[in-house]
Amino acid sequence: MVMVRRLTLSERIMSKKITRFCYRKIIDASAQKVWDKYVFDSSYTELVMQFQFYNTENKYTTFGDLIWNVPAAEKLHFLVSASVTGYVQQLNEHIPDIMNNLGKSFLRFKGYRFEIINSDIKDKSKHVIAVNFFSEPVIWHDTIDSYLLVSLLSDETTAEETLTHLVQLQSFFSIYSLKDDIQ
């Protein structure tokens, strides 16, 4: 059990940093979770369809070759995102996979961005996409080993006690933005 030093009221005000996290959820052909598989399949189908609009001479099969040779195809990141919008909405603003150290999902997202990392219209196994989830603002109180001690703005707070979460630093999970104090 990690000992948490209680912050004084003035410390809480003075030392607060407000951060937003980004979780870059990568989904590839090895996806196992149902949601991941749906997003993988839906985005691939949509990409293959819309790829053809830019691949007018059927010269390219990979996403990399297409955007290199047809710069306008960069729009495919956004255009294909329409295929996953419904799935993102099903998450009801809960960032998937990222748990606090009690094993519970606790972070909500307030924005997301879809990106195509790689793909091949002739080989679905080459399809790799990412959904970047941007978290709601959280208060970053301290860093303990590889854990960040944070509290959500919605967490219960009194003058005596702030309820907190420990979240582990991990791959594809990063601090997206930082600012001092609550505006």
Partner: peptide, 23 residues
């Protein structure tokens, strides 16, 4: 503190696959 994401890439290589496979 802003170099945070690098740390885990260094110490948790296994978790990279677990994140992507998503089980």
């Amino acid at each position: 503190a802003t170099s945070v994401p690098v740390i885990i890439a260094a110490c948790k290589k296994d978790d990279i696959t677990s994140t992507t496979s998503g089980t």
